[in-house]
Nucleic acid binder design. Structure first.
Lengths: 119, 119
DNA sequence: GCTTGACCTGGAGCGCGCTCCAGGTGGCAG
DNA sequence: CTGCCACCTGGAGCGCGCTCCAGGTCAAGC
């Protein structure tokens, strides 16, 4: 039962809006989605899964251009450049950000401790 | 020797540009900076320290409006609203983000493992 | 006094990532 | 056939966070 969803349902499952789905497709983050004979999109399970990945990476702060590259590198199954290098670079970028957030959390913790005592 | 830095040095120490420093001041993330009789800014040690905090929270992804509120709440020494609540809310927001980044990192790790094996 | 360079202001411009809109088509229910 | 609603397209608009610019002032060095 490999489903094939109309746009509204794809939007619901992925948590993105119709506009965002179309935008991502235009920008090449999502491979061209199949169409019915009438020209309407039908999202395959694979599409939905891929959108999940993209959306997860997007939430982590990767930019559209990065994700386009991610998509094209992982989709062109072959002579793609240094995929592992590419992925590894982004991994460390994300770690850097996680560390920044940790620092910020400890700043907040300090303030919280201060005001918890005095308020 | 409490220093009082001209803009260029404040920029250098904080890692922000002159434009950004002025922008933050206009937006109220930084209290009004002292001026010389001639109208030029002089950043105090306190200013620089505060800018460090702001910049750290900014790097973690907090928005300008949040930081303005942060500034005004922590500066108005008194009848400020629920400071601890405010700080705690932002703390959990940051934790949510850190978690999203962790998720994304594990997605990347999976891909890295896959392509490390096949490339 | 003159030059020079750091600084000032207000406001325009920009890149990103959507988001919205107008005007039109597909296809099912009645 | 007629509504109607989901969907289509291309393009404009928007909020955010800067960034850049024009035109002017201050003050140190010559």
């Amino acid at each position: 039962m490999t489903a094939s969803l109309p746009p509204a349902q794809a939007a619901e499952r992925t948590g993105l809006t119709l506009d965002t789905l179309r935008y991502y497709e235009r920008e090449g983050l999502i491979g061209p989605v199949d169409r019915t004979s009438g020209g309407k999109r039908r999202y395959s399970d694979d599409d939905v899964f891929w959108i999940g990945l993209i959306s997860c990476l997007r939430d982590a702060g990767l930019g559209i251009a990065d994700l386009r590259q991610f998509t094209s590198m992982l989709r062109e199954g072959d002579a793609a450049g240094d995929r592992v290098g590419f992925l590894t670079r982004h991994r460390s970028e994300l770690q850097r950000r996680a560390a920044q957030i940790e620092t910020a959390i400890s700043v907040l913790d300090e303030k919280i401790a201060y005001y918890s005592a005095t308020d």
